[in-house]
Amino acid sequence: MSVTGEPDPAAHFTPLRAELIGLAYRMTGSFATAEDITQEVFLRWNATDRAQITTPRAWLLKVAARLSLDHLKSARHRRETYVGPWLPEPILGPEEPPQQAAHERAQDISVAFLLTLQRLSPAERAAFILHDLFETPFAEIASLLGRGEAACRQLATRARVHLGEAHPRQTVTEEDAQRIARAFFAASRDGSEVALQQLLAGDVVLHTDGGGIRNAALNPIHGVDKVTRFFAGLSRKGRLSHVPLLHLGRVNGLPGYITLEADGLPQTTALDVRDGRIVAIYVVRNPEKLGAVQARLSETFAAGQQDAVTNCS
């Protein structure tokens, strides 16, 4: 029995757990943090007088949003002093943390979209995510943010303007996603400048996130020539020649893969593709962001799903 006398506090919570993770992940950019926040929401839900709550989903979403905002305040200094480009924590597979609304961008957790979300103020982010993705009335958002409904509408409107500046994600079939990911892995590993230039758009941008823990470029690298030379240089130094491919599939909904690097740690690569060319490359090397990826790989191996694992060493 819980403190409220109700026998099963999970009855309302469990069906909404994925939504709560989806909200917190979009707010914070960290899947691990989103899971922690969701667990804290459950603890608070278990401890509250649930008989007094008429709309459990609204209460749970509001608590998840408040905890996400609290996390953003505490993480502000760490983000400001982050070494090199900051990228969201990668998640694998086509399945995306869900939400309620059928918004045209609601299913988009591509890295570019998440980065644009992160550039919004916390209040703008909360107003947009809660209203547009989770269909929360502005009256409830106003209560959460301590602002009037009109002000919250303005926050959401400003967020939509900023998000509208981000390029919409193009649908890439599974066949094309695997073909492009395999081709880029082979070309970058071999340092083939001709193959790379055939795959990359002229204005391609490479983002590498090592978090100051593993080697990575300290600034984004712009343009096909510079990106091509970057990978060709790594290949000449022998840093990519023996890198095995552990997993080929979606990374944040984008074509991508996971490799096992020379230091024995994994690395994720996600490729933003438009009109058949790679326009952005997102490489996450920071081991603090790869815990969920390592756990997912361990589950795959444990389940014996070897058809999902390709070793190209």
Rank of each mutant, 00 (worst) to 15 (best):
A195D: 15
G202A: 14
H162F: 06
H103V: 06
R189H: 02
S188C: 03
L145A: 05
G148V: 04
A187M: 11
Q198T: 13
D132C: 11
L200G: 04
E96M: 15
L117Y: 11
A126C: 09
A123F: 04
A177W: 08
P220T: 11
L196A: 03
A106P: 01
R160N: 04
L117N: 01
H103L: 10
L92Y: 07
S188L: 05
L130Q: 07
H222K: 12
E104K: 12
Q107S: 13
V161W: 03
L206E: 10
T171Y: 08
G212R: 11
S192I: 04
G164E: 07
R153Y: 08
V172H: 06
A195M: 02
G211T: 13
E165K: 14
L196K: 01
G146Q: 10
E135H: 10
E96A: 13
L130M: 15
G146F: 07
S143L: 11
A186F: 02
T208W: 02
R125G: 01
Q170M: 13
R147P: 00
I129A: 05
T157Q: 15
F128W: 14
I180M: 12
G164Q: 02
F128C: 07
P90N: 06
A156D: 10
Q198H: 15
R158D: 14
A112R: 13
R125T: 03
Q198N: 15
A112C: 02
G202S: 13
E95S: 09
H222F: 12
A159E: 08
A201C: 05
E165D: 07
V161K: 14
F185P: 00
F184Y: 15
T116V: 09
T157K: 12
H207C: 02
A106D: 05
A183I: 01
I213Q: 07
G211H: 12
Q107A: 14
T173S: 15
I109W: 00
G212E: 02
D108S: 05
A166S: 13
I129H: 00
A150F: 06
L206W: 09
N219G: 00
V205D: 03
A106R: 00
